[in-house]
């Protein structure tokens, strides 16, 4: 390594930029997160355990992680379809649809939450038709899922879209000329090409859903044990001036998210390795 660093290079400034990067990341990311652990250390192990293993808190973990995962899966599936349609077909209003995809990015999440609640409440636009069918969206876990799906949608579309765009038409023609059916072409040729990007999009959507707060609090109704998400629980603790307790739950979320992202990154490395292996 030191050998490489000493070599004269046409891209100078490595030391300076690396130094700045490390400093900046420390300032913005690492130090605040470390503060979290420091804050938690005010608790004894017993108190810590009580804060994080409380049945209400455990229920919120299950809800948050479970629904975030399901929402990311839904987004992965429909995101690929949307990206496919946007790349492959030209139709009037395509640009408009393309712009619509970014809306969940741009909209303040609280606004999204209020809008979703209004639409899906028992006498809302959609809610009134779903109610007779026995489907209640607002103030149920299903409502949380709708909100998490809404805010995660752009991630998959925006990561898969450029990859689909770069996919040469000739590759599909080659597969067809070799006798592959359309289905085989999609599963054996197109999907493997798109998979790494899809995984990235899935991860981003999942991570985004884990931390989502604004849009969920309105539509969920925040019923303890049923529709209460972990970020809300942290806020509740903060409002009760239980800073250490809030930090303890935050630490659990942080570690769990980190481990999950690590696993997905590992998957990504594994699927990407097959393409760039040397």
């Amino acid at each position: 390594m030191s050998l490489i660093l000493k070599q004269p290079t046409v891209l100078p400034g490595f030391g300076l930029t690396l130094g700045f990067t490390l400093f900046y990341l420390s300032l913005i990311v690492l130090i605040p997160l470390a503060g979290l652990f420091v804050k938690t250390s005010a608790l004894t192990w017993d108190q810590f355990w009580q804060a994080v293993a409380d049945p209400r808190t455990v229920a919120s973990y299950q809800l948050t992680f479970g629904l975030s995962f399901v929402a990311a899966l839904i987004n992965a599936f429909f995101g690929v379809i949307i990206a496919w349609v946007l790349v492959r077909y030209s139709f009037p209003g395509r640009k408009f649809v393309d712009a619509l995809v970014d809306l969940p990015f741009a909209l303040p999440t609280a606004v999204a939450g209020i809008a979703l609640t209004a639409v899906f409440s028992v006498n809302g636009w959609l809610g009134q038709y779903l109610e007779p069918l026995g489907i209640t969206v607002a103030f149920t876990p299903l409502g949380v899922l709708v909100a998490l799906t809404f805010i995660g949608l752009p991630f998959v579309v925006r990561t898969v879209q450029p990859v689909l765009q770069d996919l040469e038409k000739e590759i599909e023609e080659a597969a067809a000329s070799l006798g592959a059916t359309r289905w085989k072409t999609i599963t054996k040729v197109i999907f493997p090409e798109v998979f790494p990007a899809l995984l990235t999009g899935f991860t981003s959507a999942f991570a985004r859903a884990l931390g989502e707060y604004g849009s969920v609090v309105f539509i969920s109704g925040n019923m303890p044990m049923r529709t209460e998400i972990t970020p809300l629980l942290i806020i509740t603790k903060l409002e009760q001036y239980d800073y250490a307790g809030a930090a303890a739950i935050a630490v659990v979320m942080l570690v769990a998210s980190f481990v999950l992202l690590l696993i997905i990154n590992g998957l990504q490395w594994w699927s990407g390795r097959r393409q760039v292996a040397f």
């Binding site: 590759i171 080659a174 597969a175 090409e193 393409q275």
Partner: peptide, 12 residues
């Protein structure tokens, strides 16, 4: 059998 100018091999 069709051979394309830019090969069109399956990268993965």
């Amino acid at each position: 059998g069709f051979v394309f100018q830019h090969y069109a091999l399956f990268r993965h």
